[in-house]
Structures are given as structure tokens and as C-alpha cells.
Write a protein that binds this DNA or RNA. Structure first.
Length: 93
DNA sequence: TTAGCCTTGAAC
DNA sequence: GTTCAAGGCTAA
């Protein structure tokens, strides 16, 4: 058995770093990001970053910066509707 | 407002 | 008929 989950594990959200529950919106994300992304996009939520929109999204700061969290969601390639955002991510099956 | 769990629908 | 994903609802 190899315990290589020390640096980065494939079973972690590329957004917040929580444990993924499965494929959501085209990416492996956690239930939190799923509900957050849905609530944000489906309700046309509008957040504002108090800094430079470059906050580091972690499991502790993700709740502090919903704007940067949502930004990262799109940055990793999440899409709710037929929104096709051109973004290339390194993901090989 | 965020996270989690449950239910329903679609695809295979 | 079964499996996976998305959506909805509830709880903290």
C-alpha cells in the first residue's frame, strides 16, 4: 500500500481542498463547492473581494472569500449551464 | 451562508 | 436495471 497523500491527492477539491464527493459540474469537487457554486450561479449571487481578488483559497479561508472561491471554481473549469469558458487544465485520465 | 444528505433524472 | 450527476431541502 502506498500512502502518497502527502502533497496533493486527486481526491481533493482543486478549489478548497476538501474531500471530493464525486464529479460535479465537470470536475471532482466536494459537496460544499457543489452547493456553493449552485447557489452562486443559480441565484446570480454577487460577491466582492476586499483585497485584490487574489486570495489564497484554503479550507479555512474559502468561507472568508466567496468571491475568490467562485473565481477559483471557474478557474479550475467548473460550469453550471452551457457556459463554455476556455480554460485548459492538466487532467489526464 | 455553508455543508451535508436525500431524491430525482439521465445515461449506460 | 444499475450507476453517476445534478438539484433540492435541511441542519449547523
Amino acid at each position: 500500500m502506498e500512502y502518497t497523500y502527502d502533497d496533493d491527492l486527486e481526491e481533493l477539491c482543486p478549489v478548497c481542498g476538501d474531500k471530493v464527493s464525486g464529479y460535479h459540474y465537470g470536475l471532482l469537487t466536494c459537496e460544499s463547492c457543489k452547493g456553493f457554486f449552485k447557489r452562486t450561479v443559480q441565484n446570480n449571487k454577487r460577491y466582492t473581494c476586499a483585497e485584490n481578488q487574489e486570495c489564497k483559497i484554503d479550507k479555512t479561508q474559502r468561507k472568508r472569500c466567496p468571491f475568490c472561491r467562485f473565481q477559483k471554481c471557474l478557474n479550475v473549469g467548473m460550469r453550471l449551464e452551457g457556459n463554455n469558458n476556455n480554460n485548459n487544465n492538466n487532467n489526464s485520465s
